[in-house]
């Protein structure tokens, strides 16, 4: 439990470092989309950190950034192709934000700040830490947005073609009207702001 809190409060890329916000705001309209995006980013982060730190001594200073971006975009394209084949609804739901993972500040940022200067195993651990932090953050936001904005929690819907399991929980019955503010991007920004405020306010106590 303490470890989970650490991921949330200490250098969490979304709440503390405020990186990679555009994907957080855009794809969190359902819970399922958010945690799937978190898992995708986690996988890409770990593999890209591993690869970047492998070749860190060979690549020269001037062409670092284009080389890293090539690595990251290759990984993203691979994931795109896999998702396109196995779960078209999810691929459509992500839309443009799946290719935009290439310029997600977390991945490029960790690659430049950590993986290009540290050993392989440490880089994998760092990628894992940031990725889990991102996964927890984006899942919380997706959960809250869908709960307040739609009155449902989608555990699994779009990727049911792989898992064969479909579950959408309707939390409120029809008499409670959901608050459409949270389905708009403005509402997502407000929710993100409130959470950043709460987390940073409590950071000293953890």
């Amino acid at each position: 439990m303490k470890k989970v809190l650490n991921y949330l409060f200490k250098e969490n890329p979304v709440f503390v470092l405020v990186l990679g916000i555009c994907s957080v705001l855009a794809v969190t309209t359902t819970f399922e989309k958010s945690y799937m995006m978190g898992i995708v980013v986690l996988i890409i982060l770990v593999i890209s950190n591993f690869l970047v730190s492998l070749i860190r001594k060979i690549v020269s200073e001037e062409i670092r950034i284009p080389v890293y971006i090539i690595i990251i975009s290759t990984l993203v394209t691979l994931i795109e192709i896999i998702l396109n084949k196995y779960s078209k609804p999810l691929y459509d739901a992500f839309g443009i934000y799946l290719p935009l993972i290439v310029v997600n500040c977390i991945i490029l940022g960790r690659a430049l700040a950590f993986a290009s200067k540290n050993k392989v195993f440490d880089s994998i651990k760092d990628g894992f830490k940031s990725g889990i932090g991102y996964l927890i953050a984006i899942s919380i936001i997706g959960f809250l947005r869908e709960l307040f904005g739609n009155g449902t929690i989608t555990i699994m819907n779009d990727i049911s073609s792989i898992t064969g399991y479909r579950e959408i929980i309707h939390v409120f019955n029809n008499s409670v009207i959901p608050n459409k503010l949270f389905l708009t991007s403005g509402g997502a920004f407000i929710l993100l702001g409130i959470l950043i405020g709460i987390i940073n306010g409590r950071r000293g106590e953890v």
């Binding site: 608050n179 459409k180 503010l181 509402g187």
Partner: peptide, 10 residues
Amino acid sequence: LFISVSYNSL
């Protein structure tokens, strides 16, 4: 503004 974005149907 908040009301009209959140609960426009009402």
